[in-house]
């Protein structure tokens, strides 16, 4: 069942002639992790800003649970569809972590004590328990990313939109953030939309992938299908996941026979074991 739908949306930033989104149609299914892949300037962030109503399309419509976003009260909409900005410095504006995370619940009408409890819980969820009194400026970039995520999770959204959640984070930290997101998706049935150009991350965590190019959807479908479609990926300026790329080279240059390309280390392990087994 779809939760968010963008129908034929077009958007052009003021002062430019080229549309950032060009008659784009996308459906987000309830409880899925959808990755929006695309190169810089392909329209990923603009699309996210449309999905939570920060931007209004020039034409077309975006709806949540079948109702146009414009018909929601802004407060209701933003508490249902949470957006985490790419740069946490844009999102964190309070002097301390606790005050920043409490900001959403306070705006939703929670009293100070309750908001404080909620903030502590959200901070614990993202692995920042005890960071409440810390000044925001003293956090590392990765911690700021987590604090920004806590500031949105505390509002208990149905849909979580993450704009490049792993950009600027070390590889282990990136995987930890995505594991946290997957855990939330599984435990709370949270619908997650992630923008990135990290195809290796998408191979591990995406249920479904949508490839954007010049403001249009060029390919969408299950992660395994889309990420192994070399032609579509390269046309959009992306590459295959490393593992799939290696398998592709083995297939094309070394005549290793394979129908599907493995995308993750786990799949590659099985793929190699199968072939080694066949040779024995």
């Amino acid at each position: 069942m779809s939760i968010l739908t963008a129908q034929d949306i077009t958007y052009t930033y003021p002062g430019t002639n080229v549309p950032a989104l060009d008659r784009l149609t996308l459906t987000v299914e309830t409880g899925e992790i959808l990755f929006l892949l695309g190169v810089n300037g392909s329209g990923k962030t603009t699309l996210l800003h449309h999905l939570n109503g920060l931007l209004r399309p020039g034409s077309g419509a975006v709806s949540l649970h079948g109702m146009l976003l414009g018909r929601y009260r802004e407060k209701d909409l933003f508490s249902k569809v949470g957006l985490v900005f790419q740069d946490p410095n844009d999102q964190l504006f309070a002097p301390t972590v606790e005050e920043d995370v409490m900001y959403g619940p306070r705006n939703l009408g929670e009293d100070g004590e309750k908001a404080r409890e909620m903030a502590a819980e959200a901070l614990a969820t993202v692995g920042l328990a005890g960071f409440g009194p810390r000044e925001v400026r003293t956090l590392s970039y990765g911690q700021k990313k987590r604090a920004a995520l806590a500031g949105i999770l505390v509002m208990d959204p149905e849909v979580l939109l993450l704009d490049e959640p792993t950009a600027g984070i070390d590889p282990i930290g990136a995987v930890r953030i995505m594991e946290l997101v997957r855990a939330l998706n599984e435990s709370k049935q949270l619908t997650v939309v992630v923008t990135t150009h990290d195809v290796d991350l998408a191979a591990v965590f995406a249920h479904r992938v949508c490839v954007l190019d010049k403001g249009q959807v060029v390919r969408t479908g299950p992660a395994a299908e889309v990420l192994s479609d070399a032609a579509a990926m390269r046309k959009a300026g992306l590459r295959l996941p490393r593992i799939a790329h290696l398998a592709e080279i083995l297939r094309d240059k070394d005549d290793v026979d394979t129908e599907t390309l493995p995308l993750t280390i786990g799949q590659a392990r099985k793929w190699i074991k199968d072939r080694l087994g066949n040779k024995r």
Partner: peptide
């Protein structure tokens, strides 16, 4: 502009949050 956007997505509607 960015700070305002960050406040908006967390429910800011023109009124300041105040502890009653």
């Amino acid at each position: 502009e960015r700070t305002y956007r960050a406040m908006r997505i967390r429910g800011f509607d023109g009124r300041a949050t105040a502890e009653r």
